[in-house]
Design a protein around this nucleic acid. Structure first.
Lengths: 140, 140
DNA sequence: GTCATTGCAAACGCTTTGCATCTGT
DNA sequence: ACAGATGCAAAGCGTTTGCAATGAC
């Protein structure tokens, strides 16, 4: 059964996640490899990424728009604080949250626990801009 | 400009979320209304749901499979602990996490803060089933 | 030589959109 | 009567899959 072979394409996909931190989509990886001159098909990237997830080498989450994004598991775990207006992102850590999530899951008998946490808000710059434009256009 | 009208369909969609707790997809709402005898188009459900999200009456998140699901905002805010194998979901609360998210966002100057948090794991039943099947098939 | 892997294109599922019709105001 | 809302069908998007060709072992 399932004998796994080392191919140029699989290696290339894994290498992308070695070089890049954070989350990246299959399409992004594909574009990046194509740009680098590595001929590779989109479906191959999808299959390679899935294989890496199955192997436990990648974690995956869904973005707000429904796209699947992947990151190397060994990367330092952190969360994102995202401005919902300009998209500016701040990486934040919260050891307490990690422990809480693990504890809650354990209390319910869950094992092999992971979690995703995103915080959304309006950053200083954008809330000031919004206030200014509201003043200029009263009925906004 | 944007004058919003009260239509039978919009009311029906909003009513579904009044009666049901938790997260539900647009397709599920559509099927439910059809089953109840309310004639309504799928795209109308999508548009109604989006309008409710814009109005701040619904929250939306993405499931693991990329489907968008919605829930009434007035519902007590909580998070989900999801079995990544069978999909069983437990609702969990974590006041500490809420406060942490608000504080971290405030420290970075963000306002109007919200967040999404999902915990994934393998539930007791599924981890037992997995152990059993691994024992039966040593080279799995 | 065998069989997993590749790559294309077509299929898929969820969501969005164009447009003619309908309806609340 | 006007402007927003509806519903269908078709398009759009990310993702998956069928199948013949390719290449790792």
């Amino acid at each position: 059964m399932g004998q796994i072979r080392n191919t140029r394409q699989r290696t290339a996909v894994a290498a992308v996640f070695d070089e890049l931190d954070g989350f990246h989509s299959a399409q992004e990886v594909h574009a990046r490899l194509r740009a680098a001159g590595d001929g590779i098909g989109l479906s191959t990237v999808y299959r390679a990424v899935q294989a890496l997830v199955d192997d436990g080498e990648l974690d995956s989450i869904r973005t707000d728009s429904g796209e699947a994004v992947y990151r190397r598991c060994s990367t330092q775990h952190h969360h994102h604080l995202v401005c919902r207006n300009c998209g500016r992102t701040v990486e934040v850590e919260g050891p307490a949250v990690e422990r809480w999530a693990d504890r809650v899951a354990a209390e319910h008998g869950f094992t092999d626990v992971s979690h995703t946490l995103e915080i959304f808000g309006t950053c200083t710059t954008c809330s000031q801009a919004r206030a200014a434009s509201a003043a200029a256009q009263p009925a906004g």
